[in-house]
Design a binder for these strands. Structure first.
Lengths: 163, 163
DNA sequence: GCAGAAAGGTTTACGACGTGAACGATTCAT
DNA sequence: ATGAATCGTTCACGTCGTAAACCTTTCTGC
């Protein structure tokens, strides 16, 4: 058989490509998994943040993960429609909408967190605890060095958009 | 000062989140950089593949990186309009379009590769060669274990879609 | 206390993508 | 020769994220 140039290079990939590939896979896979509780990654992320800072304004929470205000509205709309989050007017400033988790929201978040944990395990299956820690510290090093924010990246919400 | 729950956890992130974050950053940053030669990542990827397998059919090349036929058309259209790639009819099978690089395409690819190299360096700035290798092998381990293809992921083509 | 600036939230219109289904042309199988 | 499969293409659709405009409420300076 002749060497097929189309058949993947088993040659070592570049780090940049590997990072993209693995990172995007991680995102997509998580999107699949988190869909089990009828959420997508941005919604889950916002839900988490609301839990961490109940009573904060919509924009304060959005700003923390670099989500533009107009996008935040849609996200919170979703969460509210599903009965996971509540918008309460704030007496002292009638412009703002303070966000709170509902009981259902708390349950959903809990389930989501279990899924996230499973996802984490799945991703690092067959990897020693030592390696895992090592990998984390190296990635963290890149994050620091590249001065990455804590932003939730747009897109990548659904594995299968045509569903 | 009170502990602000909105201010990022400096606590150790999960591996899954770190991977997504870094991976997506790598993609976005590369998209920015490769735009200097007026390409986006999928176009650059196809260009590379055409170079590696000149004369192959459009779909053969597309299949190698898991790009659906209908998407491939648009991609090759772009490359052809820019004069980087040529579609030539194949005498023995008049259905297929064999792809070839033009001289301009070769130059562009070369420039793109230099950029990719720089991107690689930028990403791993301040990282020892040893760590770099280590990181690569660990990521490769995940790729193998997760059985990831060589697909080019959709989306992420442009840093600023509204441009 | 009033005018104008600024901030929170919302709505809307738009543009960018990727996909699947349907289609014509060509080649293959029998 | 006829039907099935393949290559490439077109098209219509649905999903997303964004910026711009807008209303309401609060703040600032005078």
């Amino acid at each position: 058989m002749t060497t097929d140039p189309l058949n993947g290079d088993r040659a070592p990939q570049t780090l940049a490509f590997l990072l993209s590939q693995v990172g995007i896979h991680a995102s997509r896979r998580f999107a699949e998994r988190i869909a089990e509780v009828d959420l997508n990654p941005p919604l889950f992320r916002v839900l988490n943040l609301v839990a961490a800072a109940e009573g904060e304004s919509q924009q304060a929470i959005g700003a923390a993960i670099e989500i533009p205000a107009s996008r935040m509205v849609a996200l919170v709309d979703e969460l509210e429609q599903r009965g996971l989050v509540e918008r309460r007017p704030k007496p002292e400033d009638r412009r703002v909408r303070a966000l709170f988790l509902t009981a259902k929201g708390k349950r959903c978040l809990e389930r989501g967190r279990r899924i996230a944990k499973q996802h984490e395990d799945e991703l690092t299956e067959g990897m020693s605890a030592t390696d895992r820690k090592l990998l984390i510290s190296m990635l963290q090093q890149i994050v620091d060095q590249q001065a990455l924010g804590k932003g939730v990246h747009p897109g990548l919400s659904e594995k299968d958009p045509a569903k």
